[in-house]
Nucleic acid binder design. Structure first.
Length: 418
RNA sequence: GGAGGCGUCGCCUAGUCCGGUCUAUGGCGCCGCACUGCUAAUGCGGUUUGGGUCUCAAGCCCAUCGGGAGUUCAAAUCUCCCCGCCUCCGCCA
């Protein structure tokens, strides 16, 4: 939810953001109109209530003979107040839905345009070349007895997989490495719930445009999270937080319906309905948000380097930002089998957008004000495993194990086909 | 899942039975001022949050006693639903 005061002061800035996102600038004017309508309704209801309170007080002090008349007037006012309150509630609701429809205002410098309009900021490492025909991660993983998508489909459906043997251990190794490094960098480790209430989902902006992506439990009014960003963001909801910054590294399973991606990445474990992830989440003073964003990006880069993966960093275009993000950097690793870059980590600066919805505030010079929230991937397991197997494959089907992972894999330097 | 108890403006707390100066009491903490030759004590004042009005500020107004709905001229107080916490029972990794 954006700041309505800022919207009133400078609506053109928000319209420009919408245009950069290739979204409807009309939403801005709809919100302005809803805001004005609500303020009118509030003023009307407030003044009626003032009258009603006076009338109600008069009832108490009234003598027996004047009482009936005063009571009649009080009753009439009560009815008017009730109507005015209903109108106000309606205006509140209209304002709320208009506000929820509008995504965060993008920051200066964000490339305008759609998914293809990103800007490459840098490339780390060389695109690997192989003097043998490369296999994809599913062939490699099957030969290693590490990935079993056939049984995944049998048991749970398409886009599910079993990780077995070294595959299972590799997942745990990645989680341990990511968690350990994050803790060393000052993040507080958290095991987060994967089921959350609607407020948590909505507060993080996942029930808007991306509602179709989210699994919902019909019987319990709970949602399965697509990322532990959701429980981590909601962790401090409704709280006044001091002693900023707060930095968390949350682990959870992640569930995604992949509703809009039929036919995309159907092979292997690049795009699955369930995977595990370590997610970084920071709460900082709004003025420190940009610096924190770069800090999260630096952390992600360091982690990919530990995995000895070549990657590039892109500045994601406005139209490809999530609802809550004002700026987003993705790290994309090279996927040899498809000879393309694949997003492995993503870090978003949500400014005060999430915090406003979730009621996370801190005390500043202006009194209580929403904090800034930022999130970033430390490690999303399945997809990272896919890239690791492919990049580090050898001609004989064995796979090199990066040094940083070896302590978590019984010291193994390579994984061998079974 | 069953039974009972509880939820008050940072923290603790009075008020809820029996609706009306509750404009929510007191303490702690915090902020400001005064005094005392020191950052202690004491005294005085302030201290929920959100919204509206307003050029700014002040002021004024409205809402807010876990959340929502209802009864009433009037709800912290009465009724219902929901959420959370605690105790006991049942079940369970």
């Amino acid at each position: 939810m954006i700041d309505l005061r800022l919207l009133r002061e400078d609506p053109e800035r928000v319209r420009a953001s919408q245009r950069a996102r290739q979204a409807d600038p009309g939403l801005v004017d709809a919100l302005l109109a809803a805001d004005e309508a609500r303020r009118a309704a509030v003023t009307a209801a407030d003044s009626l209530r003032t009258e009603q309170k006076a009338a109600s007080t008069a009832v108490r002090g009234a003598s027996a003979e004047e009482r009936p008349a005063i009571l009649d007037r009080a009753k009439a006012l009560a009815a008017q107040v009730k109507a005015a309150e209903a109108a106000q509630a309606e205006a509140d609701l209209a304002l709320r839905s208009a506000a929820l429809a509008l995504p965060n205002t993008v920051l200066d410098g964000v490339p305008p345009g759609g998914e293809q309009d990103f800007v490459v900021l840098e490339q780390v490492g060389q695109i690997p070349s192989y003097d043998f025909p490369v296999k994809d991660h599913l062939d490699l993983g099957t030969a290693l007895a590490a990935i079993d998508t056939e049984r995944g489909a049998k048991v749970s459906g398409s886009r599910f997989a079993f990780l077995t043997g070294w595959g299972a251990l590799l997942e745990l190794a990645l989680v341990n490495l990511a968690m350990g490094a994050a803790v060393e960098a000052g993040f507080t480790p958290v095991i987060a719930p994967a089921l959350v209430r609607p407020e948590a989902m909505e507060g993080t902006g996942f029930l808007g445009a991306h509602a179709a992506e989210v699994y919902q439990l019909e019987g319990d009014d709970l949602y399965l999270v697509g990322t532990s960003e959701v429980p981590l963001a909601a962790f401090h909801s409704g709280e006044v937080v001091d002693e900023l910054p707060y930095r968390y590294a949350g682990f959870s399973s992640c569930f995604r319906r992949e509703a809009g991606s039929h036919g995309r990445d159907t092979r292997g474990i690049i795009r699955v309905h369930q995977f595990e992830k370590v997610e970084l989440f920071s709460l900082v003073a709004p003025a420190d948000a940009d610096a924190e964003h770069l800090r999260l990006l630096a952390y992600e880069k360091a982690f990919l380097s530990l995995l000895e993966l070549p990657f590039r960093v892109i500045d994601v275009a406005a139209g490809d930002l999530g609802t809550s993000a004002a700026r987003k950097y993705d790290c994309e690793a090279w996927l040899p089998s498809q000879e393309r870059w694949l997003e492995l980590t993503s870090t978003s600066n949500c400014t005060d957008f999430q915090a406003r919805r979730l009621g996370i505030r801190s005390r500043g010079e202006q009194g209580l004000a929403p904090v800034a929230t930022l999130n970033g991937t430390a490690c999303a397991t399945f997809r990272t495993i896919a890239v690791l197997l492919e990049v580090h494959q050898r001609a004989d089907g064995s796979v090199h194990v990066p040094e940083a992972l070896r302590p978590y894999l019984a010291g193994r330097k390579e994984l061998l086909p079974q």
